[in-house]
Design a protein around this nucleic acid. Structure first.
Length: 182
DNA sequence: CGTCTTTGACCAGCGC
DNA sequence: GCGCTGGTCAAAGACG
């Protein structure tokens, strides 16, 4: 297994997002991809490169764009058994080129589901932020066409700082440019 | 021992 | 109204 480079909002994909899934205060309209950062992945670290450019085939592009562009309000009233919120938060889809689907963005995620998607031989994984009070969810899906392409969809915004053993992640954060509408 | 993954079942929305 | 699909829960197991 190899590691994975982490990428973030790309110019064409999440450009139209309303809010990034990260509480970063840096606001830049330029599209930059986050360089790889060594994580502490037990899987094995490999030299990653920044080939996370927006490689989006027509099919994928359509998906991510529809989410970012007009998918700001997916009101799929999801009435839970407990009757929580019925409004669906906007989702932001990022396409990344990686061998693995688990993109470590510095947050801790707990996998809570996995379903097979039609048109895709690869299953979609559902993750949720393990922070208390943080309802950020994310789903990772791989393209059956190009297994090298992984689509990560974020739902919600983190309201807490990144919690990762990587102490210098902060430094990395300052380096990365996140698209922030504010 | 605590945390996270796995996996099947369950539920709600939508199309027919 | 029924069946399909996507999304979520929860118990048990795996793993450190």
């Amino acid at each position: 297994m190899e590691n994975y480079p982490m990428l973030f909002p790309l110019s064409s994909t999440a450009a139209t997002s309303s809010a990034p899934p990260f509480p970063s205060s840096n606001n830049m309209a330029s599209s930059h991809i986050f360089n790889n950062f060594h994580g502490n992945n037990p899987n094995g670290y490999l030299g990653l490169k920044t080939e996370v450019h927006a490689a989006r085939p027509p099919e994928v592009q359509n998906v991510s764009q529809s989410e970012s562009l007009g998918g700001s309000e997916n009101e799929v009233k999801l009435g839970k058994k407990k009757g929580e919120k019925k409004v669906r938060k906007p989702r932001y889809a990022f396409q990344t080129r990686s061998q693995v689907d688990i993109l470590d963005d510095g947050y801790r995620w707990r996998k809570y589901g996995q379903k097979a998607v039609k048109n895709n031989k690869f299953p979609r994984s559902y993750y949720r932020c393990t922070h208390q009070g943080c309802n950020v969810k994310k789903q990772v899906q791989r393209l059956s066409k190009d297994e090298g392409i992984v689509v990560t969809t974020y739902e919600g915004v983190h309201t807490h700082a990144i919690e990762k053993p990587t102490d210098n992640f902060e430094h990395i954060l300052s380096q990365m440019q996140i698209y922030t509408p504010f």
